[in-house]
Design a protein around this nucleic acid. Structure first.
Lengths: 338, 338
DNA sequence: ATGTGTTGAGTTACCCGTAACGTTACGTTA
DNA sequence: TAACGTAACGTTACGGGTAACTCAACACAT
């Protein structure tokens, strides 16, 4: 199998025409006879010719059809869905996603950006609003369309699709306060630095302050934000002796874990303790209760990102920021004000 | 931002040397003075030069560092994990994944293969063993490393990593029969044709036959294999009046859905009915019971696939097929023979 | 002073398509 | 019949790097 790739020149020679004529036939550009077309296409089939798009790009000093898509991880089903939404849309318009998993590290992102840019992509979609200075520099310099996902940013590098995480945390805090809660807790994971989750916490904290309540405890676990960290984090929190009335979790996976711990310990939710999650994740949809949470349009984020990207590639002028918003799910896991 | 990309020639001119010298400096090839190196690197920084790797590939008639990775969907957490495993490994060795979501359709795969091949990738990783004839033709013709994932195939196109789905279904059937079950049922989804799940069903059926039992009902829903299809599929099955003693589901998501339905209907598992899943998915790990299932090494599949790919790219001779196997989880949701 | 080797460059050709332009062989019109 | 138009195809140049080769300058041994 050391078949050297068949080139257009070989097809042309076999068909007894020039490269140019063969090229015209393949692009159906016109300016050739039907007989020639038949002959060329026959040779294409016979030799199994596949065009080398690299050369095409090269010839016209264009870009490839690749769009770099960088997300933190795929273990998080939200990002997996966002990616799926993006790719579906891109593929429908003749583009391909080049994957980048940053594992929440900006240095990884920077390295990935450098590599992907060297392959002349049509554009880049990245997660988050914070990047290394060099990454910003490279993105700016490239002159390529860039979409920043997830964290809504009114002053994006180029384009932005996401939601205001601070506001979502604030909404939850205010909602809980409105329903009579005074002593709040938060459980999240912090193996990554400045991210959307910390914005949520900041908003939550602010709402509590504004309402005159107290954030009596915040727990930052060194783990992935899943069911068991939620379970054991809750155990740890309750064992600490602090008398939280309601716990806001980084996401639904953790919240459901917390719920299960409370249930096991004989605590009644919401009578003894309130539980709130974030994200409206699949795990919440299969519980016999309705988890209080924040619903986020994952698929919409991906699709919108891809749409912005595509219209910029097509050269259409477009609004360049899009706040997809969020929705508070009242649920049944916190007490309602009388 | 219509900055034309800075080329090596511009860097060279600015540094007062030839393209070739600049090229040598950048590749640290030697044959230049320290003074020249400093000057060239200064201009690289000043102009923000990023190499155009396309040209390099082009010049040397080489391949890009892209590896095409095609999977059916990302909604399925198994495939998301497999992809993550692949990408981590590939990136560590200087490669990038170009994503392809086939949505279980071979025509999509074929089209994707054609497109990706035209960009001169270093190799392709695809899911499943069945492809369109033209897809097989193109893959063969390319002479590129190809890994077929998921479904173990002793006669792969090139390389293969996966497990024998038929055997896994057979094992489950035999296990259940050994524990005294005689009247079997199966619930799966069939919006896709020949796939790994149907191999599992075939193995299950065969085991039942061999044990002298009866598959009294098999339900193929037109839906994604999730919790609710499992829930309502079970309702439908039980309402049909058939007296199944045990139900084998296409995967754990469906099985847990089935379990919840039984629980709601007051049926005791495993006393009144047996429940078995497949995949050892995350959903099973957060239940208060241990689901009878088949455990599959997802991450290992991805890693192994990437490893095979990388060693083939590096030109190392390698075993080209790898059966990663599976493990039956006895669980607590089926009755044990006395 | 001459020959030889080494260092530090520059020159040329090429990769595979395509844009731009050139060339034939006709047919058509004045 | 000369002048012109057009369909069908060919030729040339180019893009951004790199392999392979050439070349100039200088050091050093003979």
């Amino acid at each position: 199998m050391k078949n050297k790739q068949v080139s257009l020149a070989e097809v042309a020679r076999a068909a007894g025409v020039s490269k140019m004529t063969a090229s015209r036939v393949l692009r159906d550009e016109g300016g050739f006879s039907e007989k020639t077309r038949t002959k060329v296409m026959a040779e294409v089939d016979r030799l199994g010719y596949l065009p080398n798009r690299l050369a095409t790009v090269f010839a016209g000093d264009q870009k490839t059809t690749f769009v770099g898509v960088s997300i933190p991880e795929l273990g998080n089903e939200i990002f997996a869905q966002v990616l799926e939404g993006i790719d579906r849309k891109l593929v429908a318009f003749g583009h391909q996603s080049v994957l980048g998993l940053t594992e929440h590290a900006l240095e990884n992102e920077e390295k990935w950006i450098e590599t992907v840019l060297s392959w002349q992509p049509a554009g880049l979609i990245v997660t988050g609003r914070s990047h290394t200075p060099r990454a910003v520099q490279m993105l700016r310099n490239s002159g390529l369309p860039v979409v920043e996902l997830w964290d809504f940013n009114s002053a994006p590098l180029d384009m932005c699709v996401g939601l205001n995480h601070f506001d979502s945390g604030y909404s939850m805090g205010r909602y809980l306060a409105t329903n009579g809660y005074r002593k709040f807790a938060y459980i999240g994971t912090s193996h990554h630095s400045a991210n959307a989750a910390s914005s949520r916490l900041a908003g939550y904290t602010k709402a509590i302050e504004d309402a005159g309540g107290t954030l009596i405890k915040q727990l930052q676990l060194r783990d992935a934000p899943g069911f068991y960290p939620g379970y054991y984090g809750t155990e740890q929190l309750l064992a600490s002796g602090e008398e939280a009335e309601v716990i806001f979790y980084q996401n639904d996976n953790m919240a459901v874990g917390g719920y299960e711990y409370c249930k096991k310990k004989g605590l009644s939710v919401p009578d003894d303790i309130g539980i709130a999650g974030w994200g409206d994740l699949p795990i919440a949809s299969i519980q016999p209760y309705r988890l209080t949470s924040i619903s986020v349009p994952h698929l919409k984020i991906g699709q919108q990102a891809a749409e912005l990207m595509l219209s910029r590639i097509a050269g259409q002028p477009m609004v360049s920021t899009k706040d997809v918003g969020f929705r508070l799910i009242p649920g049944t896991t916190v007490q309602k004000a009388p």
